[in-house]
Amino acid sequence: MKIDAHQHFWQYDPVRDAWINNQMAVIQRSFNPTDLKPLLSRNGIDGCVVVQSDQSEAENEFQLANAAQHSFIKGVVGWVDLQADNIGERLAYYSQFDKLKGFRHVLQGEPNRALMLTPNFRRGIAALELHNFTYDLLIFPDQLAYSRELVAAFPNQPFVLDHIAKPNIKAQQLDDWEQELRALAAHENVCCKVSGMVTEARWKQWQPHDFRPYLDIVFEAFGPERVLFGSDWPVCEVAGGYDAVVSLVQNYLAAFSAREKALFWGENALKFYRLEAATVPPLLK
C-alpha cells in the first residue's frame, strides 16, 4: 500500500489563513478530499494522512469528518493545546477516534524558539506517550538542536520530522542543517518525512539536482526504515504540483531496492501512524 503521509485540507478563510499570501495565490481557495483523490489515483497512491493547518480543536472535527466520509484518508494529525492544564482529559477524549493518530503544533512560527522545552509543553508530550499518540515536529533548522533535546527526553514517544526541517534549498545551504539533522536522526524514536522540499527551493524554477544533496543526507542519516513520503499538497502547488513532487522522489529512488522503495512509499507510514495492522519484515540486504 502506498501512502502520502503529509497533506492538507482546508476551507479557505483569508483572515485565519493569512499565511497564504498573494505570492501563493494559487492556493488561496478551499481544498477538499474530492480535489485530492484524482491526484492520488493518477500516481498509484492508495491513501493519505491529513495534517492540521489550523491550531484549533475545530480543525480536528473538520478533518475527522473528512476521514469518516472518505476511506482513502487513513489517518489524521490534529492539534491540541499541549500546554493546557487539562491536556490529559483532552487526549483521553480524542482516544476514541481511531483515525486520529497524533498531533502537531506550529513550532516553526513561535517567537520562543525553544517553546518545546518548556515544562508545560514537555508535560503535554508526556501525555501523548500515555495515550499512544504520535507527534509531528514542524520546525526550522534553528530549532533542530531543541528538538534533539526534546526527543532525547522522551525515548518511547514516536516523533516524525516534517519537511526535513525546511533547509534553505534555494541557497543550497547544508552545513548547520546537516550537522543538526544527523544528531537528531541518531535518536531512533524519530522518523523523517521527505516532504515540503519544493517550497524551500526556487519555485517552479528548481531542478532535480537541487535536492540530491539533501536527500542523500536524509536517507543516510535516518536509513530506509525511518523515511516517509509526503506531498505537502496543496502547498506544493505553489512550486510545481503533486505530479512533480512524486516524480522528483521517484527519480531519486530509481537505484534503490524494491524493498527500500516499499518501505518509503508506504510501509514506514503504516507502521509509524499505525494506519492498519502491518508487519514490516527486516530490511532485505
Rank of each mutant, 00 (worst) to 15 (best):
D4P: 06
H187T: 04
N268T: 13
N112H: 05
F159D: 08
S257F: 09
L181A: 00
S41C: 11
V80F: 04
Q96K: 15
E220H: 11
V77P: 00
H131Q: 15
V198P: 02
V50D: 03
G124T: 11
S71W: 01
L228Q: 04
L144W: 00
E237I: 11
K2F: 12
L161I: 05
A255C: 06
D98V: 14
A25M: 06
H6A: 08
T279E: 15
K37T: 08
Q55Y: 02
A165V: 02
Q207P: 00
R29K: 15
E89K: 14
R259V: 07
W233T: 12
C236L: 10
F133C: 04
D81G: 06
R212E: 14
E276Y: 11
Q173Y: 07
I139W: 02
S53R: 04
C236P: 00
L283N: 06
D85I: 13
Y12Q: 10
N21L: 07
Y12D: 05
W19L: 10
V235E: 09
E200S: 12
G241I: 04
Q69Y: 00
H105I: 00
A65F: 05
E89S: 14
C192P: 06
A84L: 05
F222N: 03
V26K: 09
P155F: 12
R274Y: 03
F121N: 09
F229W: 13
